[in-house]
Amino acid sequence: MKAGVIFVLLLMLCYAQVTAAPFFMVSAAQADLLLVSLAILLVFQGPKVAMVSLPVIAVLLGFVSDRSPAVLIIALLPLLPLAYWLEEAAPTVARYAQTLFAVGVTGLWARTVLSITVFAQGAPVDVGALIFQVLVPGLILDLTLLSLAYLGCRLLGWEPRSLSPARQRYRA
């Protein structure tokens, strides 16, 4: 039941990414709804849900857009290990700050990877535009959207979970 709800939610978010998100562009960047959703799933539903959701997101978004599922998997891949590393390396830092950092870095990586694939398909390489019109505005958009989503989840009473896949198994 829960898996079905998450699947339908992700499908609707994929369609939102290709119907509504283009209307909210800052410079050349638009908010990455799926990256933020994956981060929210990771923090509030646990790593197992996020581990399954990542390829599902890649396939769904790849099918409804012009992007390759293979590239989308690589683009989103760093989020989970990075978030887990932050949890282990900086346990005193608030989970919200850890999540912001992980999403920020993954967003920069994802946009760079996706832009490189477009350059490889014949678009002229424009590093200046990539940095100042894509990466920087995209970072701001992602962190703003994540903050709003995170706040909403906390207001609903959801608690952040451990990001360790093995450790979660022993939860009561």
Partner: peptide, 13 residues
């Protein structure tokens, strides 16, 4: 139906 307006690309379905 949709518009995929990722940076550097602009594709409609």
């Amino acid at each position: 139906l949709t518009r995929d307006a990722f940076p550097f690309s602009d594709v409609i379905r």
